[in-house]
Amino acid sequence: MKKIQAITLSAKWKERIFLLTMMAIPVAHFLVFFVYINLDTVALSFQSLDRSPSSSGEYIFVGWQNYREIFRGLTSPYSVFTKAIRNSLLLFALNNFVLLPLGILFAYLLHRKMPLAGAFRVIFYLPSIVSIVVLTMLFSFVFDSTNGIINPVLERLGLGHIIPEDGWLRSRDTAMKMVLLYCFWAGIGGNIPLLSGAIQRIPEELREAGRLDGVGFFGELWHIVIPLIGTTVSTLYMFGTTVIFTIFLQPKLLTGGGPDGETYTIALYIVESIRESGELTMGATVGILCALIGTPIVAITKRLLEKIFPTYEY
């Protein structure tokens, strides 16, 4: 009987096999869900479904047609896409120039143990941990024309004339304002935990030194706190910038993009164009354009923020 000789591997090979095994899943994940999907998206943006009678439903190369169509849409007075860009920029401004500064202020106030700080901590943070579906429903109910509590209150106050005939969420004048109001309400607490954590890490002696030099409440905030939490502020600002291309659930759940496309965002436009037509090509084209425009914006913003908020060791 032939003796089977056991295969022995050198330690080096064992290490290689171990590393390969460990790497296989993340690498496969990266290749499939990043490399393949992105390459496929680029390819799709140059294709369109062939609907001719002789077609068998394949996607055909159409050159720059999808891109031309989007640019043509941008110049059309009836384009939903133009409204989507406007609204996405508004939400970006709300996030970075309203919610972020307010977040810093409130986090600082909470840290300074303002009266009822504990209660305010819960009030600010609660909307951030409740499901967006529940929050949007709640918000819609509050402003509902029949059962909502806002309209009767306004009527009692003699402000019935400002209630829109078509309802707050369906009037062309108020719908986007309501989406912004919702984002303000639901988003104001979102930054506070991170900012509070950053403020707490500031050494007490630095603030004491400031106070000894006669720095007041706002002076301390401006000259000591904000520079020292600069990296956190930069990160939050970067997140706030990406909403230009990512935010869609809020208008989707509140208004469905209506009325008349008034509350569309770029991301909602992509989602709806795929959902409505069942076709991926226009969504892919908008996605590629967003990446082309967004990547340099994010990169430049990051550079600028690094200059404005240098990292301090403490």
């Binding site: 509902d144 024309s145 029949t146 209630i163 005939e165 078509d166 309802g167 969420l169 369906r170 009325p259």
Partner: peptide
């Protein structure tokens, strides 16, 4: 008085039917 119930534009089909 309008011929339509105020706020109809913001109602979905079930809300309108409930009204």
């Amino acid at each position: 008085y309008s011929y339509t119930l105020s706020g109809s534009a913001s109602k979905n089909h079930l809300q309108a039917q409930q009204s």
